[in-house]
Design a protein around this nucleic acid. Structure first.
Length: 355
DNA sequence: TTCCCGTAGC
DNA sequence: GCTACGGGAA
């Protein structure tokens, strides 16, 4: 009779698991301490700090009663000191708001500083035996390979997909063991790079092995993330001249020319942005000429999405002070300047504004 | 120098 | 739902 995937995994775990100190306890406090330390440290190094930390602060009361300096002293040398500060703060909150008893609800744990989806799932599954799946890098790799999933780790689809899958696999009677077994399996057997599949107890289940794509999973989202930038361009035209500037090195379009600009990470109200321009550049607030504010123009590049708006001022008074910062370019010589496509597209769309 | 990975913070 | 951060490892 064929045993289930879960049975084989749990059996492998019982035989092969490393004998680590936090695996002998079920106290949520100790699990928490171990999980936070292990987030940032190799097991070998982390073990020493686990003992050291619990010796100094054997329970949540002693941790909460300590000063943050004492906690940092114990943490000294581990790095990621924010997490020590977060632990101290969380310990004090648990003492104050939960009478020193660790919350056992996933949602409650999530609200605490330093506890995110991974740590909350680890604590409730290991210490409170609740069937909440953990998805760390190891689990992601193991399940992605077993089911030949190609969604990258660094995307919400990827993480959501594996988390849903893990939720369907987790046995209600042994959630903590299952979660730890998956993580240990990823750390010891189903390792990154080239695992030795010939000795893998799950090879008959593994879709990636069947398709001979084990080494290609998990796929890395090689494409750098696309960031969005909002550009607000001031196009100031008077008496046959327009203000331009040359872009600096080490930026997109370096050495090309464009207009005075404001860059924002978020969308901005056009009128208020325009007012900000006038203020920033000490321009006259009373306008006598024509003002056009263009709609947002999307410009998609490989590594960023630029959404541009043009604040076009024509036949207003010449902003004398800006001579020093910007170049006064005659309109009939504009074709001598190299502009980014975004700028020429705007000039081609509204030729009458540049006459 | 780049990658890693879980959380903070917007 | 996204990016930034942190600091050791590769």
């Amino acid at each position: 009779m064929k045993r289930s995937f879960t049975e084989i995994l749990l059996e492998w775990y019982s035989v092969n698991k490393r004998d680590l100190p936090w695996r002998r306890v079920h106290d949520p406090y100790c699990i928490w301490v171990a999980e936070i330390i292990l987030q940032q440290t190799r097991v070998m190094h982390g073990t020493a700090y686990y003992y050291r930390f619990l010796k100094a602060f054997p329970d949540i009361l002693s941790l909460a009663a300590a000063s943050v300096e004492q906690v940092l002293k114990i943490w000294e040398g581990l790095g990621y000191y924010t997490r020590a500060r977060n632990m101290h703060e969380t310990a004090q909150r648990i003492v104050r708001e939960f009478h020193g008893k660790f919350p056992c609800k996933y949602e409650e744990l999530l609200k605490l500083k330093g506890i995110g989806p991974y740590t909350a799932a680890a604590i409730v599954s290991i210490a409170f035996h609740q069937p909440v799946p953990v998805v760390d890098g190891n689990v992601f790799r193991v399940l992605s390979r077993l089911f030949a999933l190609k969604a990258p780790f660094n995307t919400s689809e990827g993480k959501k997909g594996v988390s849903r899958l893990a939720g369907t696999l987790i046995p209600p009677d042994r959630p903590g063991d299952f979660n730890q077994a998956l993580m240990e399996f990823g750390a010891l057997q189903c390792i990154p790079g080239q695992p030795d599949c010939s000795v893998c107890p799950l090879k008959q289940w593994c879709m990636a092995k069947k398709q001979d794509i084990v080494e290609e999973i998990p796929v890395r989202s090689k494409h750098p993330r696309i960031i969005t930038r909002y550009l607000h361009y001031l196009v100031w035209i008077n008496n046959g001249n327009v203000l331009v500037k040359q872009r600096k090195d080490k930026d997109i379009w370096h050495k090309l020319f464009d207009f005075p600009e404001i860059v924002t990470d978020l969308e901005r109200n056009p009128e208020r942005t325009f007012a900000g321009f006038l203020h920033k550049e000490r321009l006259p607030m009373s306008m006598s000429g024509n003002i056009f504010i263009s709609g947002p123009i999307l410009h998609q590049l490989t590594h960023r999405r630029v959404i541009a708006r043009f604040y076009h001022v024509k036949d207003n008074k010449w902003p004398g002070d800006l001579y020093r910062k910007y170049i006064r370019a005659p309109l009939n010589e504009l074709k001598a300047y190299a502009f980014p496509r975004l700028i020429t597209a705007y000039m081609e769309e509204y030729p009458e504004r540049f006459m």
